[in-house]
């Protein structure tokens, strides 16, 4: 029985997606089933490993993006009765790159060692956080970038909408389409429910942004700069509408207040506090 379900989101980059899929099967095939979502890809650009194809008018035009895409994958697993089979969900964008060697097994080991960690991310060599992971290779953070989240099922179950599961709001709030601020929200939900969010340097992952920069036309999305501008403006609008926050700093303070509370009630993990 495989412990993890890995969900990869693809839009028109079959080679990149297939490479990631094959990497996972080669090094982590005994630990994970890998599911590929085609978020409105052209028929000629489907990953040869694709599991689900989403071809509604809206998705054909705009794709799913991280929040809606990952919700979609988990909802499909739920509908197909496979959600409960897994202890962990590994959510990946197709531009994620790993080192040669197992990724999932070390992550599961970390999660086994840290029973209150609900969300775990491998560190990236391009992240400054690596300098905080020297003596302790895993620490609990109040901000975790979202290109490779490993989520514990119990954590997902504690905050997801199982009554009316839908790709718009199962775990992530899909109304924030491009997802600026969504990481803060998920981490806040974790600490608010006494789950921690951790980064580990036991394994490394990176995001190859060159795909977005060089193949925006093929992905059928806006160019890098326009996408960035929309990502921020939409996210800020979402934060204001949903929380009344006018700044990502408000969001950060909000998350950190839950973070501090977590350690008050779980002093046994204080060595992992930043």
């Amino acid at each position: 029985m495989k412990k993890a379900a890995t969900i990869i989101l693809n839009r028109n980059l079959p080679e990149v997606t297939d490479r990631l899929y094959e990497h996972l099967v080669e090094y982590d095939g005994d630990q994970t089933d890998v599911y590929v979502i085609e978020a409105g890809s052209d028929k000629k650009n489907l990953s040869k490993y694709h599991t689900w194809y989403v071809g509604t008018e809206d998705v054909l035009a705009n794709g799913l993006r991280y929040s809606r895409g990952m919700n979609y994958g988990m909802v499909e697993l739920l509908k197909e009765g496979r959600f409960d089979r897994y202890d962990f969900f590994f959510l990946l964008t197709n531009d994620t790159e790993f080192q040669d060697g197992p990724t999932i097994s070390p992550l599961i080991q970390v999660l086994n060692k840290h029973p209150r960690v609900g969300l775990l991310s491998p560190c990236s060599e391009r992240w400054g956080e690596r300098r905080l992971l020297l003596s302790e290779k895993t620490k609990y953070f109040w901000f975790v970038h979202n290109n490779a989240y490993m989520l514990r099922r119990e954590f997902v179950e504690s905050i997801c909408d199982t009554e009316t599961p839908h790709y718009m709001d199962f775990l992530f709030d899909g109304s924030n389409f491009r997802g600026y601020g969504s990481e803060h929200e998920l981490v806040a939900k974790a600490y608010a429910n006494y789950w921690a969010a951790a980064i580990t340097s036991e394994v490394w992952a990176s995001e190859n942004e060159s795909h977005l920069i060089e193949h925006a036309d093929q992905i059928r999305t806006e160019g890098y700069d326009q996408n960035l501008q929309l990502y921020i403006s939409e996210g800020q609008r979402w934060m204001r509408k949903k929380y009344g926050f006018n700044s990502h700093w408000s969001m950060q303070q909000y998350v950190k207040s839950f973070y501090e509370k977590f350690f008050e009630f779980h002093p046994e993990y204080v060595q992992y506090k930043l």
């Binding site: 391009r126 992240w127 400054g128 956080e129 300098r131 905080l132 953070f141 109040w142 901000f143 970038h145 600026y180 960035l228 990502y231 921020i232 996210g235 990502h248 700093w249 950060q252 950190k256 930043l274």
Partner: peptide, 17 residues
């Protein structure tokens, strides 16, 4: 910067600490 700057600890983490 609302986005990550390579090789830097995000200000959200660094500053409060």
């Amino acid at each position: 910067s609302p986005i990550r700057v390579a090789n830097e600890i995000p200000a959200e983490i660094q500053l409060p600490k």
